[in-house]
Structure formats: C-alpha cells, structure tokens
C-alpha cells in the first residue's frame, strides 16, 4: 500500500508531500472561515485559477532554472517588456506580429541573461538582478509609463477572456504549459541533463553534457515563459503596462520552492510548482476576502510564505 503510493508519488514527482497537505489545510481554513464571504463559490474558485495562470507559467520556467543550479530574478521585468512589446506592435501590425514580438522579447532577454551566465561565467543571481532593474527601466521608458490598450478581440480571447469548448483559455494555457513542462522536465533527456547539471555540474560536464549550452537554454526557457505570461496578462487585462509582473517575483519563487524544487539545484517538480502557484493565488484571494488592508495582506502573506518555505525546505532536504 505504502509502496504503491510512493510509486505514484515518484511517477508524478510529488516529492515534498507537505505542499499538498498545506494546500488542503489552507483551502479548508478559508472554506470554513470565509464560507459567508463567497470563497467557495465556483466563480471565486475559477477566478483564483484564472488569476494564477501567468504566475504558474513563470513558475514552470523557474523550475528549469533552479533545477539547473541557476536563478532568474528578471522574469517579472520580462513580463512587462513582453506585454508592452506585443501591445505596441499590435497597434500597427497584425496579432501574429504582436505575439512574435512578445515571445521574442522574452526569449531575447533570456538569451542575454543566458550568455552572460553560461559563457561569461557571471553568477546568475547578479546577472538577473541587474537585468531585472535594467528591463524594468526599459518597460517604463518604452511608452513613457503609459498603458497601451489591446483592442484585438482575437488576441484577448486567445490569451485572456475567451474559451474553447467551454474551458477558459487561461486554464488551457496553464494545462498545456504544465503538461509540456512536466514531460520535458521528467521524461526527456534534456530534463535529465538539467537536473544532473544542477546536482553536480562537474559530473554532468565529464559525462559529456554541454553544460554552458544547457545554462543558456534554461534561462531562455524562463524568458520565453515570462514572455507568454506577459501575453496572458495583456490578454486578460486588455492592456499592457510597465507594472505587469512587478509583484510576481516573491510569489513565483515561493510557489516553486514550496512546490518541492530545490533552491540550489538538482531537484524539482513542475506539478509541485502548479500546486504552489495555486496555493499562493488562494492565499491572496482569501486574505482579500478576509477584508485585510493591503499592508496587512502583505505582512500576513510574507509570514505565511516564510513558514511555508521553511517547512518545505525541511521536507525536501530530509526526503
């Protein structure tokens, strides 16, 4: 019986089981205490899922980066640049060019990060700390702090409010990203090389894995995911602004760590990142429904994240 569950846990990479218990505990807590405030309504629950879609996709990119033993702090700024690039291009050109501009911006910034980390051997922490600031500035100056409306219904439907066969497109994007991310992470040689590199870069190197190319790749994956997240924000809000993604840094890192990905590489889970991200979204939502002021929300959220991260780090290092 135990063997069976642990086989299932391994199959789906449910390493830190604490996250799933924590998710259920917080869900039940809000369900009971906020019963009269509409927490349990279908509308509210689906809102949580829709709102977390961009963060979940950023989190998936970050799973690859952290697993390879690197970090990306710049994805929030990439979100803003990508969303603005798409919106600006779509003012003049077709939707397709807008999408390409948004994703291209994300990949390009990821490439810049990656080249500095992989080939100039600069620490990813410092490189992406610098590009985080740099591209936040770029995002501000791109449109002089102005918000750019996204008017294409096709775009906003595809990336935001639309649905296919009754399933909201944001849910489909999330599902697609999780499935593809999980398969690449767990079932492909590339994923195995990412994990091995984060575990022991020298072992990976002497085993013939092209470590620099792989470091470049994970930072580009993160950039690409942030670019897609930017498109989803622009689609849902029907506008792009330099503030998009600004507040996602802490949430996404917390989601990934809580989801069982090791901060220093060699271990991670895409499914865990999804659950971590939903947990963070639920937390946000619950604290708002509780009527906390914004400053109180920030304090409580920070404390809960601290606790959650502490527990899951103990869990993952012991496991």
């Amino acid at each position: 019986m135990f063997k069976r569950t642990s086989a299932i846990a391994r199959k789906f990479d449910l390493q830190g089981s604490v996250i799933y218990l924590g998710f259920i505990a917080i869900f039940l807590f809000f369900a009971i205490t906020l019963a009269d405030d509409g927490f349990l309504t279908t509308r509210n629950l689906s809102n949580i899922v829709l709102q977390t879609a961009p963060a979940t996709i950023m989190a998936i990119g970050l799973v690859f980066v952290l697993s390879a033993g690197e970090i990306d702090l710049s994805f929030g700024s990439i979100v803003a640049v990508s969303a603005l690039a798409a919106a600006v291009v779509m003012q003049e050109h077709s939707m397709l060019f807008g999408i390409l501009a948004g994703l291209g911006a994300g990949l390009a910034i990821g490439w810049i990060n990656g080249v500095m980390v992989a080939y100039l051997r600069l620490p990813s922490f410092l490189v992406t700390l610098a590009t985080m600031g740099l591209f936040a500035g770029v995002a501000r100056s791109m449109t002089d702090l102005r918000s750019i409306p996204v008017l294409s219904d096709t775009f906003t439907g595809f990336f935001g409010s639309g649905s296919f066969f009754g399933i909201p497109s944001l849910v489909l994007w999330t599902l697609a990203a999780v499935i593809v991310g999980h398969l690449v992470y767990r079932e492909s040689r590339f994923g195995a090389h990412v994990i091995a590199t984060g575990d022991n870069a020298r072992a990976a190197q002497v085993s013939g894995i092209k470590v620099p190319r792989l470091r470049l790749a994970v930072l580009m994956i993160s950039g690409g995911c942030a670019g897609l997240a930017g498109l989803l924000y622009a689609g849902r809000l029907q506008a792009a602004k330099y503030t998009l993604g600004e507040s996602d840094l802490m949430t996404v890192i917390a989601a990934v760590i809580v989801g069982g990905t090791a901060l220093n590489g060699g271990k991670g889970s895409v499914i865990g990142a999804l659950v971590g991200s939903l947990l963070m979204g639920m937390l946000n939502n619950g604290l708002i429904l509780m009527g906390l002021s914004v400053s109180d929300q920030m304090i409580v959220r920070g404390l809960i994240i601290l606790l959650a991260v502490a527990i899951s780090l103990r869990d993952t290092t012991r496991a």
Partner: peptide, 13 residues
C-alpha cells in the same frame, strides 16, 4: 549526481 538514482548516473549524458 548525488540526488539521482544509480541507473540515471550510469547513463548520465
């Protein structure tokens, strides 16, 4: 690679 199973190390790369 310490956090990997034996078989993944045998086939590493």
């Amino acid at each position: 690679a310490d956090l990997q199973p034996v078989y993944m190390n045998l086939f590493l790369g």
